[in-house]
C-alpha cells in the first residue's frame, strides 16, 4: 500500500525530470547486485565483467519492472542492521530454548493463542522487519500483517505478553531510518 504510494509519487516527479530520475533510481538499485556478483564470481576477465554488467542491468530492469526498487532501504539503515541482527539472534536463542523444552517434555503444555499486536505508525519496511522477526523467533508467528497491527499466533500467552511489552518494537524503531 505505501509501496504503491511511493511508486506513484516517484512516477509523478519522474515526469518532470525523466532522465535524471531514472539514472538515480538505477544507481540506487545497482550496488547490491554489483557487490553480489563481484563476491560470488571471483573472475575478473573483461569478457566475464561485461557479462556481469549485463546481468546487473537486467536485474535492475526487472526490479524496476516489478516495482521493487524500494527507496526506504538506505545505507544508514543497512549499517544499523547488523546490531539489530545481533540482538535478534540473542532473543532467538532464548526462545528456542523455551520451545525446545516443550518439544522434549513428555507432556507438552501447549496453550496456543492468537492475538493482535499493535504496531502504530510503523513504516512499511519496519513492519516487514518486525513481522519477520516475530516469525523468526520460535514460539511466535505472524499470521496477518495489517496497517496498524500484526496478528500473532503464539505457543502460549507469555509469548504474546512479551511482544506487548514492546522491547522488540523499540529495537525495530531504533533500526528504522529517521526521516
Amino acid at each position: 500500500m505505501s509501496l504503491l504510494d511511493h511508486d506513484s509519487a516517484g512516477a509523478a516527479s519522474a515526469q518532470q525530470q525523466p532522465r535524471r530520475k531514472n539514472t538515480m533510481r538505477f544507481l540506487r538499485t545497482a550496488p547490491l547486485p554489483v557487490v553480489f556478483w563481484l563476491l560470488l564470481s571471483g573472475h575478473y576477465e573483461p569478457l566475464l565483467l561485461a557479462l556481469g554488467a549485463l546481468s546487473v542491468a537486467v536485474v535492475c530492469w526487472l526490479t524496476r519492472r516489478a516495482g521493487l526498487d524500494h527507496r526506504s532501504v538506505t545505507f544508514a539503515f543497512a549499517l544499523r542492521l547488523p546490531r539489530y541482527f545481533l540482538w535478534l539472534s540473542g532473543s532467538v536463542l532464548v526462545s528456542t530454548f523455551a520451545v525446545a523444552r516443550k518439544v522434549w517434555s513428555p507432556r507438552p503444555d501447549l496453550r496456543p493463542v492468537v492475538e493482535p499486536i499493535p504496531t502504530p505508525h510503523l513504516q512499511e519496511l519496519s513492519q516487514v522487519v518486525y513481522a519477520n522477526s516475530i516469525t523468526l523467533t520460535p514460539g511466535t508467528l505472524s499470521l496477518d500483517v495489517e496497517a496498524n497491527h500484526i496478528e500473532v499466533h503464539s505457543l502460549e500467552r507469555s509469548g504474546v505478553d512479551e511482544l506487548r511489552k514492546g522491547l522488540m518494537l523499540r529495537r525495530v524503531r531504533q533500526t528504522e531510518a529517521q526521516r
Binding site: V99, V103, W104, P108, P112, P138, G139, L141, H153, L155
Partner: peptide, 26 residues
C-alpha cells in the same frame, strides 16, 4: 533434531510451524 521431533509431536499445523521454526532459525 528438536525441530524434527517437534514436527512429529506437536498437535496441529500452527504449532508445528513453531517446531519448524527452531530448525529454520536456530
Amino acid at each position: 533434531l528438536t525441530g524434527g521431533v517437534g514436527m512429529l509431536r506437536f498437535p496441529d499445523f500452527y504449532t508445528r510451524i513453531h517446531a519448524a521454526g527452531i530448525t529454520d532459525s536456530a
